[in-house]
Amino acid sequence: MTTRPPVHPSALFAVDGLLTDEERDIRQTVRRLCDDELRPHLADWFEEGRVPARELARRFGSLGLLGMHLQGYGCGGLGAVAYGLACLELEAADSGLRSLVSVQGSLAMYAIWKYGSEEQKREWLPEMAAGERIGCFGLTEPDFGSDPAGMRTRARRDGADWVLDGGKMWITNGSVADVAVVWARTGDGVRGFLVPAGTPGFSARDVGRKLSLRASVTSELVLDGVRLPADAVLPGARGLSGPLGCLNEARFGIVFGALGAALDCLETTIAYAAEREIFGRPLASFQLTQEKLADSALEIGKGMLLAVHLGRLKEAGALTPEQVSVGKLNNVREAIAVARTCRTVLGANGVTLEYPVMRHAANLESVLTYEGTSEVHTLVVGRALTGVQAFQ
Rank of each mutant, 00 (worst) to 15 (best):
E322D: 14
A284H: 13
P243N: 07
V332N: 11
T289C: 15
A348W: 02
T344I: 01
L234M: 10
V326P: 00
E315D: 15
V345E: 04
M304Y: 11
N330E: 10
L313C: 07
L240M: 14
A348I: 13
G327I: 04
P235N: 06
A284D: 09
Y272S: 12
G280K: 10
S325W: 01
R276H: 14
Y272C: 05
Q290W: 04
R312G: 00
P321Y: 01
A258F: 03
P282I: 07
F286C: 07
T320W: 00
A262M: 03
M304A: 10
E275C: 07
G311T: 03
N248K: 10
I278S: 13
S285A: 15
L288R: 15
L293C: 09
N331M: 08
E299S: 15
G347V: 01
E291D: 15
C246S: 15
A273M: 09
L346R: 06
A274M: 13
C265Y: 01
T320L: 14
A297W: 02
L346M: 06
K314V: 00
L353S: 13
A339Y: 05
Y272E: 12
L283E: 04
A294V: 11
V326Y: 08
A335F: 07
K292L: 14
C265G: 01
N248L: 14
E275T: 13
P282M: 05
L329F: 13
L329N: 01
T320K: 14
N349V: 01
L240H: 07
Q287N: 10
E277Y: 09
R238N: 07
H309I: 00
R343N: 12
T341P: 01
E249D: 07
G242V: 06
R312C: 00
A307T: 02
R276I: 01
L346T: 06
A316H: 03
L305R: 14
G311R: 05
E277G: 09
L298I: 04
A316S: 13
R276V: 12
V351Q: 07
V255G: 04
R251M: 14
A258D: 09
A335L: 08
R312S: 01
A348R: 11
Q290M: 07
E354V: 09
A337P: 01
G311D: 06
A318H: 02
V255R: 01
A273G: 07
P356T: 04
Q290P: 03
C246L: 07
C246T: 12
L247T: 11
G245F: 04
L305A: 13
Y355I: 02
V326R: 12
L329T: 00
Q323D: 01
P243L: 08
N331E: 08
Y355E: 11
R340N: 11
G245K: 00
A318C: 06
T289N: 11
R333V: 02
